[in-house]
Every structure is written in C-alpha cells, then in structure tokens.
C-alpha cells in the first residue's frame, strides 16, 4: 500500500477514516500533516479538554502539570529505589511489605493512586510482570511502558510460555527455578526487585542503580555487571 499525500480537500470527514489505510499502527505518524488537515484524533482530544475546562470539570493547568509529571517519571526512579533496597535491608523489608508506602517514603509521587506490589527475585523464584488485557504498568516508578510490553505477542505469551519468551530476551531461567507471572490490573501494579549481582559489594548506591535497567524491573532480564 502506498501512502498518499492527497490532502483530500472537499470531503468533510466525520471520523470514519483511518490514516493512510495501512493499519494505522505507526506511532510516528505526524499529528498535523503538511497538507493542512488537522489530525482527527488530535482535534478530538483537544475538543474533549476544552469542553471539560469550560464546564469547570478540569483545568488546563492540571493537564499541563500532568505532562510534566509524565516527563519526570522515568525508569531511573525505579533503579534508585532498587539500589536503596540492595543497600538498606530495613528499607527493603518495608518495600516488600508495602510497596506504595515505601516508594512514597523514598520520595516518589505515586501520582496514579495505584497499589504497588514489589516482587523479589530469589534463587528459587523468577517473577515476570505482564498486563494481558492492555497496558497496566507501575508508571510512578518506571514511567510509561515500552511498546513491546503493550504488544500482542508479549501479552499473549507471557502467561503461556514465559520460559520461551524470556529466552527471546536473552534470559535463561534454569528448569529448577519457578517462574511466577503476575497479571496487572487497573488498581494493582507490580515491580520486580532483581537480585543484587555477586561482585558488587564495593559499589556505591549510584553505581548499583546503573546496573538496574527498566527490563530487570519488569522481570524480562537480570542485572549484569558491565
């Protein structure tokens, strides 16, 4: 299918069109195409915002502030959290007992109000997090989920063949280790606490945090020494 740059003037579309007709899944598609026709969905979200602001139900400032919140929440928060848990046993205990309270104690704004459950990787159990129905994710600690987390193959296979799936991420889980898959929902989110690698005894907290990638906190990989 070729992409047309036809501005399609003269037809006032009432929203039944899809862009380019190729299945639409391109997240890089421009918002306002050069032909000057504003993007239907961008207009739609603007219209919703304006109407609700006019009705006094939300404020434009709240939406702007939320954009900043989204920008501020990155996987680095989770990495710092894990490094703290690795170096402070009492904090780790609190984190495992009540994730939501512990991240707030650590200074992370639990802005979406969800309950956080922290899952500890052990030599016996490897935890893996998925949202089979959609894209629930511990956003306050990890930011927004990567595209593959929301993809059909990940959601479909994580609960059926996690061992094979993990192998595709380069993670070999020995047969003697139990794999526990946690299916997230709207109100309950999971964060994996990876195992601290051997040979890191002399590392500082920031050095440790650098080992903790986003994927280790989803459970698809494990921390490696550089």
């Amino acid at each position: 299918m070729t992409t047309t740059h036809d501005p399609a003037h003269g037809t006032v579309d009432h929203g039944d069109h899809t862009h380019g007709g190729t299945g639409g899944a391109d997240p890089h598609a421009p918002i306002e195409n050069t032909a000057g026709e504003p993007d239907y969905f961008d207009v739609l979200q603007q219209a919703i915002r304006e109407l609700l602001v006019e009705k006094g139900l939300i404020s434009a400032d709240e939406v702007r502030a939320m954009v900043e919140t989204l920008d501020a929440h990155r996987p680095a928060l989770g990495s710092a959290l894990v490094a703290r848990a690795w170096t402070d046993p009492a904090f780790k205990e609190r984190l495992l007992a009540d994730g939501t309270a512990a991240i707030e104690e650590f200074g992370i704004d639990n802005y979406d109000g969800t309950k956080l459950i922290v899952l500890e990787q052990t030599p016996e159990v490897h935890n893996l997090v998925v949202c089979t129905l959609c894209s629930c994710y511990p956003r306050p600690v990890l930011g927004l989920p990567p595209d593959w987390y929301k993809s059909r193959p990940y959601r479909a296979r994580a609960v059926r063949e996690p061992r094979a799936l993990l192998k595709e991420f380069g993670t070999e889980v020995p047969d003697g280790v139990t794999i526990r898959v946690h299916d997230s929902n709207a109100n309950m989110r999971y964060l994996v606490l990876p195992m601290r690698p051997a040979g890191t005894e002399d590392m500082s907290e920031p050095e440790l945090a650098a080992l903790v990638t986003r994927d280790t906190m989803i459970g698809v990989t494990t921390p490696r020494l550089p």
């Binding site: 997240p27 890089h28 918002i31 993007d39 969905f41 961008d42 979200q45 603007q46 919703i48 915002r49 939406v63 702007r64 939320m66 954009v67 919140t69 989204l70 920008d71 998925v130 089979t132 129905l133 927004l144 990567p146 595209d147 593959w148 993809s151 059909r152 193959p153 990940y154 959601r155 479909a156 296979r157 994580a158 609960v159 059926r160 799936l165 595709e168 991420f169 299916d183």
Partner: peptide, 27 residues
Amino acid sequence: DLGGLPAGPVVPSDHEMTPFEKSCHAL
C-alpha cells in the same frame, strides 16, 4: 483478551512519545 493465545516473537520495540500521545495521556 489475549492472555494465553498463540503469538509470534516479541519485537523489542519502543518510541519517544509524540506531542499528541503525551497530551492524550495527560488528559
């Protein structure tokens, strides 16, 4: 409702959010 269905390999994909996506998410 995809849990447990057969599917192909996971493609390790991601992208930076566009302004539209960010506005929509914030809203």
